[in-house]
């Protein structure tokens, strides 16, 4: 089954570089769906980060990655997480074992990617902003359900955003 992948590759600022990174993707059966070229954002080594999104099945994606790694500096590679939600947690977020909370929300297709905790005074409830990303809406919904359950157990209030979908 075809999945959406994204990679960030650092290219030298000389002609033909972009083409040479796209060629192996196309040759190995990847379908390029997006290229984001950040010309003004050079790295300390004077390279230009380029974000490329493509669809391919997992096997082909692996082959593409192996081939690219021989010639290029790949900074990031992964399936694109298309679903994202940020929400508030109110309560004793830290004292109720924060790492346990996060570990139990994370799964193979969803994870907590950002967490900001604001603590007022000692022993007072704190407020955390947590961001979860997932491969799909369904995976996100399942991660959310796990989070709700864990927070119910730990006496933490989950404040979710109202989204377009009801």
């Amino acid at each position: 089954m075809s999945e959406l992948f994204t990679l960030i590759v650092e290219l030298e600022d000389k002609p033909g570089q972009l083409l040479s990174v796209l060629e192996p993707i196309a040759r190995n059966g990847g379908n390029i769906v997006g290229i984001f070229h950040q010309r003004g954002k050079k790295t300390p080594l004077n390279r230009i980060p380029v974000e490329i999104s493509f669809t391919a099945d997992a096997k082909k994606a692996e082959k593409i990655l192996n081939e690219l790694q021989k010639n290029f500096l790949i900074r990031q590679f992964g399936e694109l997480r298309t679903a994202v939600i940020s929400l508030l947690l109110i309560g004793h977020v830290i004292h109720t074992d924060l790492s346990d909370t996060i570990k139990r929300v994370d799964s193979s297709d969803a994870e907590c990617v950002e967490l900001n905790v604001t603590m007022p005074e000692r022993d007072e409830p704190s407020t955390a902003v947590i961001t979860i990303t997932a491969k799909s809406k369904e995976a996100l919904e399942m991660a959310l359900a796990r989070l709700r359950e864990i927070c119910r157990e730990k006496g933490i209030v989950v404040v979710e955003p109202i989204n377009d979908e009801i």
Partner: peptide
């Protein structure tokens, strides 16, 4: 879930992100 555990800090954090907090029945 009621509103008894909502704190003023939660509003500060929410509003930095462009949100407020309301009790919503859905």
């Amino acid at each position: 879930v009621g509103i008894t555990k909502i704190t003023p800090q939660a509003f500060t954090v929410a509003m930095q992100k462009g949100y407020t907090i309301r009790l919503i029945a859905e």
